[in-house]
Computed example of a mutant assay.
Amino acid sequence: MLRSAFLLLLTAGALIRPAAAQVYSATDPLAHTFSIVARDPLTGDLAVAVQSHWFSVGTAVSWGEAGVGVVATQSFTNKSFGMRGLALLKSGKTAQQALTELLATDEGRDVRQVSILDAKGNVATHTGKKCVDMAGHQVGAQFSVQANMMLNATVWPAMAKAYEQNMKLPLAERVLAALDAAQAAGGDVRGRQSAALLVVRGKASAAPWDDRLIDLRVDDNEAPLTELARLLRLHRAYEHMNAGDLAVEKNDMPAAIREYEAAEKMFPQNLEMQYWHAITLANKQQLPAALALLGPIFRQEPNWRTLTGRLPKVGLLTISPAELNQILSLK
């Protein structure tokens, strides 16, 4: 990052213009980046996704709250825009009203880039006139794409096109398609380092701890979008695992097996998925099938055998002592 050079220039500038110190803060991230905020018109879910050549960009740029909205604050980032923007939406203001109020009191508005999307799909976006070229944004139907310090000016139009062309995909995969298009079009002039994806419910539920549907971050990686896509696939696989567990609770073994197999198909080398599938089979008196799965698992990682011996005590493995011994004796 060019942080040292920036700070030297800003220190020199401060001798001439003291007020500039309020615009450029050494404690705020210089998150020059590209991002998207979007609302799914079918589900109402809200998403914000971002990639940057900056460490842990998701801790600075992306903000969201179920039933309220999402915010992307970037360039010379004013992190307070995230929480304050959501608070303004929650108070009843529209996305544009919230953005206008935030910018009105910000001396650094010319170097800010921010986009706010409310739960109704209204979006407001600002690109300051002093954001580093190439910089710009494009607003579409219930979404906005924004970018600064890009290699060229084709980045954000490419994002918008990719998002609109992938409307059949789930929201999370759709916004990742937009990020991929940005990178393919040139992306950040400095390269890439981190990425993040946040999806929240369009309507808050009675269980707010479940309202953040997806929250994935890649803090430092040579190919952050590739890693973010892998994490999203892993998230989807564990959704199948959870569905399998629910089917077991309902004693619907065919459905449980379908869900477990779907998860394992997505990540065939994941021992966690294979293991709990096997334990479920054992609990449902399908010991031969369980043994066939557990043998290779134990050979690859012996600690799973140790864990198995502890499960009966807490009721997670309900088999006879003889059957347990048969499992633990696997070679």
Rank of each mutant, 00 (worst) to 15 (best):
Y238C: 06
L86D: 10
T306Y: 09
A19Q: 14
R3Y: 08
A49D: 10
M159K: 03
V218L: 03
A124L: 06
P41D: 05
L99F: 10
E249R: 15
V155E: 08
A177N: 11
V139L: 12
L228C: 06
G140C: 09
P170C: 04
A282H: 02
V111C: 11
L316W: 06
D106K: 05
A290H: 03
A278L: 10
S62Y: 08
L42F: 04
R310K: 14
A141K: 15
R236A: 10
P296S: 01
G187C: 08
E107A: 14
G191H: 13
K93F: 11
A206M: 08
L307Q: 11
E65Y: 02
D106S: 06
T59V: 02
T33C: 08
R84K: 14
G191D: 10
Q142N: 13
G309C: 06
R212G: 00
R299S: 13
Q113L: 10
G58F: 06
T226G: 03
A49G: 04
A95S: 14
G121Q: 07
A256L: 03
S194E: 06
P170S: 05
S91Y: 03
A204S: 14
M134H: 15
F298I: 01
G309E: 07
H137R: 08
L234Q: 13
D245C: 12
G108I: 02
M83T: 13
L10M: 14
G82D: 06
Q97L: 05
Q97D: 11
F6E: 12
